[in-house]
């Protein structure tokens, strides 16, 4: 592996780890707050899957960095300006409709991203994708069902779901942005060219939203910046909470 590819792969694994830990954290905020007990269990499941992915990506990043850091150093010892997650993942949990619509957007994204990552020439990334694909099938079944039920449920649930779609839509565009790092890896057959996933994502999401009697927003606004550490104000608060215990006892084992 050339130094340039190695550095890019480290950055890439960190980005994917950040997406996973941040979304996993947001989902975990629902536990004991769900609309009924079965949903608390389901949230636990999905959250665990994402925390598990984060651990795999960070462990790989740590291996590539080879500077004595471990998965927890990646998760707990970087600040919000160093985090590289997509903004969609860090948005607060909001109401049940907001979380389920965000989940649908993410699940459809991974539905197309993971099979591409599975083809990666990098064996570790490919192996992580192989495990995650199975999880995402279940996640999408669940978020799709929920968006259908909320969209085509009561007047109130419909309004809440539409509001969530409108509020989150502007954060979906950067899911398909490429930069030099990702282009280098895509050209090398290691990373995924996400710009090529947009059409499929839009078609699938539109199909589900339409079936849910929801309206697909007109493209009027787009907010970007996650991959360069230009975050919404939400991430700082989230990391403050997530990192407080770890950072209060420097250098300790848990």
């Amino acid at each position: 592996m050339s130094e340039a590819i190695k550095a890019a792969t480290l950055e890439y694994a960190t980005r994917l780890g950040d997406d996973s830990v941040v979304l996993g954290h947001r989902i975990s905020e629902w536990i004991s707050y769900g609309p009924f007990l079965e949903e608390d269990i389901a949230y636990g499941n999905v959250s665990l899957d994402y925390i598990g992915r984060a651990r795999m990506f960070y462990t790989y990043a740590a291996e590539l960095a080879n500077d004595g850091r471990d998965e927890d150093d990646f998760a707990y010892m970087r600040n919000d300006r160093e985090y590289r997650n997509l903004l969609l993942m860090e948005m607060p949990k909001g109401d049940f409709a907001y979380s389920q619509v965000r989940q649908l957007f993410a699940d459809v994204y991974y539905t197309y991203l993971l099979p591409e990552l599975l083809q990666s020439k990098d064996e570790t990334l490919s192996a992580i994708a192989a495990k995650a694909i199975k999880e995402t099938k279940y996640h999408l079944r669940r978020s799709r069902d929920w968006v259908l039920r909320l969209g085509d449920g009561t007047e109130e649930s419909h309004q809440r779901a539409q509001k969530a779609v409108d509020a989150l839509w502007g954060y979906t565009h950067e899911l398909f942005d490429m930069d030099e790092t990702e282009q280098l890896l895509a050209d090398a057959g290691i990373g995924v060219d996400v710009s090529k996933l947009h059409d499929a994502w839009l078609a699938k999401v539109s199909e589900i939203l339409t079936e849910a009697t929801l309206t697909i927003p007109e493209d009027e606004w787009a907010v970007r910046g996650g991959r360069i550490g230009y975050h919404t104000e939400n991430l700082g608060h989230m990391l403050t909470e997530m990192q407080i215990v770890h950072r209060s006892f420097p250098g300790c084992k848990w």
């Binding site: 536990i31 269990i41 651990r55």
Partner: peptide, 25 residues
């Protein structure tokens, strides 16, 4: 859960709370 000091402990705690919900059921 949101403050667990390591990713491993966070995962273990989520599983545990999830088990409690299952026991409740």
């Amino acid at each position: 859960i949101t403050r667990a000091p390591s990713l491993r402990r966070k995962a273990v705690l989520i599983s545990k709370v999830q088990d409690e919900a299952g026991h409740g059921l």
